Computed example of a mutant assay.
Amino acid sequence: MNDPWHNLRRFTQARIAQGHAGCGLPTEASLDFELAHALARDAIHQPWDIERFAEEATLIGLEPLCLSTPVAGRVQYLQRPDLGRCLDEVSRQTLLERQQPAVDVALVISNGLSSIAVERHGLALLKAIVAVYQDIPLRCGPVCLVPNARVALADQIGALLNARLSVIVVGERPGLSAADSLGIYLTYAPQVGRTDAERNCISNIRPPEGMSYQAAAAKLAYLSYEALQRGLSGVGLKDDMPKQLLD
């Protein structure tokens, strides 16, 4: 008997139509699940080589600024989400003392919950984002590199840089079909205390299986422009981007 679920496997990485051996999974499916689980754990616990990332960003003409949160390590990062939402005092003073003019976009990069994601895709996505912002044009501040950050940290950084928008590129929580996915979160008029309902998210950036760097950057540019025009972000800002712009 033909099982229609088997045809659907061509269109998704989700674990469907795995078959069965008695009341359990076949050996191949079981081992594949254990491998995916191990990859997800590695993605979370692997540290981010921020110094190398900063060097590579400098080579493509960007100004990286390495900052820190109070998080002491990856275990504490998982146990204390609150510590990932704020800068440590040294980093906060660093931004306060810059005394630079206001910028349109505060751009933040973090490994978040997947160091593998930012190692594989972070620099290429960053290049695509900077390129589309130059075309709009929008003025970006320094590229803030912050290991062990949570999404809300971009609110504090955006406020300290007097930015109209904050944008954070962050490693997403690994799933059992994707351990290397990046997400982008955009917030209008960033300040400490913004809620997740006031942000827009672009998810699953991990070519070739997920969204491409160019498509993600194009959508970010569209949402950034619309946010500045309408004076809002989050649930009030709908993604009505015409398909031909994405293509």
Rank of each mutant, 00 (worst) to 15 (best):
I60W: 00
A215G: 04
S203D: 03
E226N: 08
F33H: 04
L160K: 07
M1L: 10
R199I: 01
W5L: 12
P137F: 13
Q156P: 06
D82G: 02
S212Q: 09
E226D: 05
C23F: 15
G231P: 09
L246S: 11
A152S: 15
I136F: 08
Y213C: 07
E63I: 10
G236S: 05
W48T: 00
I136L: 12
R10E: 12
Y77N: 04
A218L: 13
A29K: 14
A57K: 01
R85S: 09
A221V: 07
A218C: 09
S181G: 14
H6E: 15
P242K: 03
T27G: 05
D49I: 01
F33P: 00
S30D: 08
L138T: 05
G175P: 09
L59V: 03
L113W: 03
Y133A: 04
N2E: 13
Q229H: 10
L123M: 07
L220M: 12
G22R: 08
L125C: 05
E97G: 03
V167G: 00
W5H: 06
E198V: 02
D240A: 04
V132N: 01
T58K: 13
Y188F: 15
I205T: 02
G234A: 02
L35E: 13
E172C: 07
A54D: 04
S30W: 12
S203R: 08
E97M: 04
L83T: 04
K219E: 07
V130D: 13
E89W: 06
V118P: 00
L125D: 02
